[in-house]
Design a protein around this nucleic acid. Sequence first.
DNA 1: CGGATCCTTGAAGATGATCAAAGTTAGTGG
DNA 2: CCACTAACTTTGATCATCTTCAAGGATCCG
Lengths: 234, 234
Amino acid sequence: MEATAIMMNSNIQLTSRDKAVLMKAPFLNSLGGSSLVNMLATMGVQTLAARATVFREGENAEAFYCVLSGYVRLYRLSRDGREADIRICAPGDTFAECLLYTDQKYPFHAQATETCTIAHFDLEAVKSLAEHDPEVARAIMASLSRHLLSTMECVANDRLFTAPQRVANYILSRCPVDGGPASIRLPFQKSLLAGMLGLAPEALSRAFSSLRKTGVTVRGRMIQVVDVQALRQI
Amino acid sequence: MEATAIMMNSNIQLTSRDKAVLMKAPFLNSLGGSSLVNMLATMGVQTLAARATVFREGENAEAFYCVLSGYVRLYRLSRDGREADIRICAPGDTFAECLLYTDQKYPFHAQATETCTIAHFDLEAVKSLAEHDPEVARAIMASLSRHLLSTMECVANDRLFTAPQRVANYILSRCPVDGGPASIRLPFQKSLLAGMLGLAPEALSRAFSSLRKTGVTVRGRMIQVVDVQALRQI
DNA sequence: CGGATCCTTGAAGATGATCAAAGTTAGTGG
DNA sequence: CCACTAACTTTGATCATCTTCAAGGATCCG
């Protein structure tokens, strides 16, 4: 496919796994033909070491991003140096595309939580693409809608549920089955999950132990659930 | 203007104040010519009594909305009946436009907090408008971006700041001046502000009294600030 | 003027943050 | 492959914050 050719030319470092993630990303997989080719033409790829900064709050926004491998953490700092995570971006997720039509400064920090490969798209270039290509505009609207919905869900979860309930929700959201026993593996460190749920690491740890009586066993990154239905009652 | 003509024909009940709000709404004020005419052609207007429901979580989504007068509350319910506000929509705000490209069910409840006039836009109609009209697509992207940014800000605020700090932030955001004394009037009930900040009404009340020592005086809906700069240090 | 709603205040309890220290895991280099 | 270090996680103890429940005041609107 033409798109693949362009992509490989300008970005030798893309592994085949990264390419697969990129093409399956919700933001791109609805695009085809010239829309896809044009989007990929504005794209660059970069690799980040663990804890590396993607951008800082207040910097001029020049690009939005798509995670190809690893996890990127979006967070804010308070004046006294405390951090609050806003979103954890998994492979396939885009972030900062909300700056296309608004601010010209990044409104939060973005940091690689481990070794990461991320694609960047020039904001100006995509903006003018979107003006002329309804398919691109559609993809952006879909992506923004999805993020808005999940962020509103996050507000509601923070305000309605306690720590054990939020942890249970998270486990359930990653359980492949509807009932009976299940076993999942955390894709990242527990401290990252804690931040994602708006908790201190200690609070996450205590939430896990309070879930033991509901049949949740944690060993390292493995989580075993005796009965998924029972967990839903929390 | 043509647009005004269409609007008035199909919606006799629009007051001139409502019309002004509508045309200044961020979602519409970037539109002109046929884009505006087409948008307004898909629009209807309705008046709601205090506490009336706009839609319920789980209902089929057929329209998104723009508030013309009054305030609309978006909220979620937990299984035990507790409510958590997600957003308070002021005149000029749109809501539920995030359903254009995603779910077909409303993911939260929407309720008029007082007598309200709201405009509704058919989701399907606007969706096909956006496909053909880059100006409409652009307006939708801008609106979604704005809401996503403010919702992320809300998550960060909830996680970083205490009740008095959030109240101080709110006051500062509505202060017309940068320093010295200021006086503002709440546009709605305190219980609504409490929910907006993720607090119980009692917690808001206590936050106000704890701000007294920082020069904040509250009498009914009037808030007086002795020194705006001092409030910023909270 | 009167009833309903809204707001404030008090007291008690739940929840989660913070700090400190011990225990685990994982990664590195010999 | 093992040992060792650094990073991460758990646990305990304490504290701040906010919620809940209850009751008394204030305010608003008919």
